[in-house]
């Protein structure tokens, strides 16, 4: 059953998908602050989180503008409930150990770079501009996360085992990046965003190359776990994340900070 989605409606959904990914992942990464294995990683993780929050401000800022109800990026970030979030399930998964955090980051970055690169060609100039700015950061994130996955995968026996476990745990959430629905159909027709499936081949190539170097084995393909980007069924983890993130705005409605 294909539902017809108006262009404005689809555009708004798309902007939430982009902004919620960076918001939720930025939040997760920021949970590391002060607890990383080495000082350089504390700095790098804070820097990654900071980039993600900056990108969130742009995507959700534009989403609020497109929505046209006088809301702000903050309203969208702090005053929506879980079912209104449109991020990939992958990014709401808990940090786990450092290996799981970096594996999650690598899987996301590998997709994010391709998505942003395609979006620099968007027919919507605002989208193209945000993508052009973000893709530089995302490329740097990918270099770093890929390097870390290789180092720890091809490191000690323990680090190898932990990275393999992280990959096995997270891989089922990869497929959602390439699913599409009526929103995507409308976006592709309007030339705003690429067909998600069109990014898969290059993504798989990146994965094969990096995981090969990391001496890690790609798990057997399992059914892609979806429900995040369309908001139909998030994981149980998201609600707890929002409880923390939104607490101030919920506890003191209308206050400015």
């Amino acid at each position: 059953m294909v539902r017809d989605v108006s262009r404005d409606e689809a555009f708004y959904e798309f902007l939430l998908r982009m902004g919620d990914n960076t918001l939720i992942l930025g939040h997760r990464v920021s949970e590391w602050c002060g607890h990383a294995p080495v000082l350089e990683e504390d700095i790098a993780l804070a820097n990654t989180a900071l980039d993600m929050i900056g990108q969130t401000q742009m995507w959700l800022g534009l989403a609020a503008e497109v929505q046209g109800e006088g809301k702000t990026a903050d309203d969208l970030a702090f005053l929506r409930d879980a079912w209104d979030f449109r991020n990939l399930l992958l990014v709401e998964m808990p940090n786990g150990d450092f290996g799981q955090t970096l594996m999650r980051q690598f899987l996301f970055d590998a997709w994010h770079v391709l998505q942003l690169r395609a979006l620099t060609q968007s027919t919507d100039e605002r989208v193209a501009a945000i993508a052009a700015k973000s893709v530089k950061e995302a490329t740097y994130h990918l270099d770093r996360s890929a390097e870390t996955v290789v180092a720890l995968g091809d490191g000690s026996e323990e680090s190898h085992a932990r990275m393999q476990a992280a990959l096995d745990y997270l891989y089922p959430y990869v497929g959602e990046m390439f699913l599409s629905d009526a929103v995507d159909t409308t976006l592709v027709e309007a030339g705003i965003a690429p067909d998600p499936a069109s990014l898969r081949a290059e993504f798989d190539e990146t994965l094969a190359r990096v995981l090969g170097e990391a001496t890690l084995t790609l798990p057997e393909a399992r059914r892609a776990r979806g429900g995040g980007r369309d908001g139909k069924m998030h994981t149980e983890h998201l609600g707890h994340l929002l409880t923390t993130m939104q607490w101030m705005q919920r506890a003191y409605p209308g206050a400015t900070w």
Binding site: H35, A36, P37, V38, E41, D97, F98, G99, A151, L152, G155, S156, E158, S159, H160, R162
Partner: peptide, 10 residues
């Protein structure tokens, strides 16, 4: 908790 990361990197 970070010991395995530092050892893995080394």
């Amino acid at each position: 908790d970070g010991a395995w990361v530092r050892e893995g990197m080394m």
